[in-house]
Write a protein that binds this DNA or RNA. Structure first.
Lengths: 350, 350
DNA sequence: AATGCCGTGGCAAACGATTGCCAAAATCCT
DNA sequence: AGGATTTTGGCAATCGTTTGCCACGGCATT
């Protein structure tokens, strides 16, 4: 069977119409100042007349560069990440387009089929670089993304120790600051709403809380940690479940901190149904910086992640590797998050 | 310059290791039952040992099919759509993976650069089909997506009149039903929160409201329409602006309907700040079915769009064209949305 | 006027897989 | 056992572009 007839005009058609050789057309398009102005014009006119678009497959095959970047998503279980994915996609796509690259998405979950697909793309030459979001490298039975000789950049998760350029935010430090803020407002007992055990972001953020407590002479026993089961797919449900835990506590903390906005939103909504007042009875701070926080009741304090900057930085790091085989930075690039205090926080009642 | 050395093992390496010809390897991989079991095993072993992955570019070039589908997004101004994009991506990606296809994203906005990029992909053979979300076909100076001989499926917007297979929901009918519900509860004056003038979904949904009013003997003057300016990028801000309009009204309607959840969330939040009670003073119904509606104050009634089913249907329609050059259905495939009533709706106060 | 250089353009060989066509081998039949 | 039929394997052309290399012509230098 022949390749499907499909195709529009090819470079040979342009060459014929312009009365020059194919190679001249190729050079005129790739490197305009290596052909005479006259020839260039003839070629451009011919190309425009035919509506010619170069065949990307053929080009990629020849030059061994697909001009396509793959973004590997962590799957929905990562509360600390799933909410900001649209913003991440937006910023990465914008930065890629600016440099003439395309964006490919191979997964929204991380099941075996997706892992295999990611590896096919990486090893099959379909992509020339990967940005991996807050998760480890895909593997299957006998391949790992680490072995595809592809530039990889990690975003949100620090993998600089494994020699992958990384761009992250200051999870731990900003959470410490937020906790210090609450301590300054007189809070002494805390409720920490976490995603599944072991998640990098949750560990870091909880670590920040603990550090602030220690610095203030408090101890780890002054925070009650509510950990979502793996089976809680959505942050909203996890937040609701945390609210049940909270209201059952004999000695309720006066401040709650959440690792994601959706958990905090559901938590805050439900505890108010149980008669707990926010912020009078409990102050709430969450993480992510979703715009919807402004319209919560009461407006929800949150820690805004610099997603757009991180996306742009990740692309810059990646293209520096792809195009110039640039050096791998020593440590992670840290772009700080910002605490936004709203009405969900007040001084502790004593 | 030679193509970058990069690449892992190629088919010739597998053939050499297995002691067979390249063509035998190709056939063994593509059509396993056309080679002997013995040969097949040798080849599979050799491929596994080398960690061989076929080069997608080379294959695509030869067979003229990229196994990649492009999704064209409408840009952020389309309030009726932007909120459900992650769910759309999820369902489309899942359906594509199942059939061995990849997903490419070329735009999150619809500026000139994005349009050009989309057309490059379409005309350059990088993609073998497009799913276009609630928007018209990309064009640039001398190309239009319509002229790329590519299968196209429209999702959310009915383009079956232009011979594009379309999968949509019943915007008009479900909004009519919702309005009837409110009328049955005694509501007689309505507030309609709309996106920018002329948006297909907003027109349809408003049309549904009007139809219900007419059917009940009411008239178009019984609904106050608040239209977002183009410059209001986010639905939340548009909703907030609508709330200002609402509270200024001398004779306030007792029911509000919004074309998207985020507009409704901001609207409901703000009017309560102004002392308007929901649902006592005004009932609110919105559109989209975001999970967060459950946790609003009060829980927000909404119309849930069957996004997952629509995504799967769009992929099915597209692949039917791509793989079997199947017929173009006569009309749109309509998958109905579902009204979910929550505490934001009650009988009208009289 | 002859030599050397530079700027242009053309030929043809890649890139890596697929597949039509034919030869060889294996299987089956009489 | 010999011929017919079915498998199986190998050669080589092909997809559309890029690019090393060479040839040719024009210009300046001596």
């Amino acid at each position: 069977m022949q390749p499907q007839a499909g195709g529009g005009p090819v470079m040979a058609d342009v060459a014929r119409l312009a009365g020059v050789a194919i190679s001249t057309v190729s050079r005129a398009l790739a490197n305009p100042d290596r052909v005479s102005a006259e020839t260039r014009t003839k070629i451009n006119v011919a190309a425009a007349k035919l509506g010619y678009t170069p065949n990307a497959m053929a080009r990629n095959l020849r030059v061994g560069n697909s001009k396509t970047v793959l973004i590997v998503l962590p799957g929905p279980l990562h509360y600390g990440v799933s909410q900001i994915i649209p913003r991440v996609l937006y910023s990465i796509n914008a930065a890629l387009i600016e440099h003439g690259y395309n964006l490919m998405i191979a997964n929204l979950v991380r099941d075996a089929a997706s892992e295999g697909r990611i590896l096919d793309l990486a090893f099959g030459g379909s992509v020339c670089g990967c940005i991996i979001l807050s998760s480890y490298l895909p593997k299957d039975d006998n391949r790992s993304l680490a072995d595809a000789s592809l530039p990889i950049v990690s975003m949100l998760l620090d993998m600089s120790g494994l020699s992958y350029p990384s761009v992250v935010t200051n999870d731990r430090a900003v959470m410490r600051e937020a906790t210090q803020e609450l301590i300054a407002l007189g809070h002494r007992r805390f409720f920490f709403i976490s995603g599944p055990e072991g998640n990098y972001h949750d560990v870091e953020r909880f670590g920040g809380v603990i550090e602030a407590l220690r610095n203030a002479g408090l101890s780890e026993s002054d925070v009650v940690k509510s950990t979502a089961a793996e089976s809680f797919q959505a942050g909203l449900m996890a937040g609701e479940r945390a609210s049940y835990e909270f209201v059952r506590l004999a000695d309720r903390p006066t401040a709650a901190m959440s690792v994601s906005d959706d958990m905090a939103i559901a938590f805050m909504s439900r505890i108010q149904d149980f008669g707990v007042k926010v912020p009078e009875d409990v102050s709430v701070i969450s993480f992510d910086g979703s715009p919807v926080c402004v319209y919560c009741n009461p407006p929800l304090s949150t820690i805004e992640q610099p997603v757009e900057e991180m996306g742009a930085a990740a692309v810059a790091l990646l293209l520096n590797r792809v195009e110039r085989n640039g050096p791998i930075p020593d440590g992670p690039l840290v772009i700080p998050s910002r605490l936004i205090l709203r009405a969900s926080v007040s001084a502790a009642r004593n």
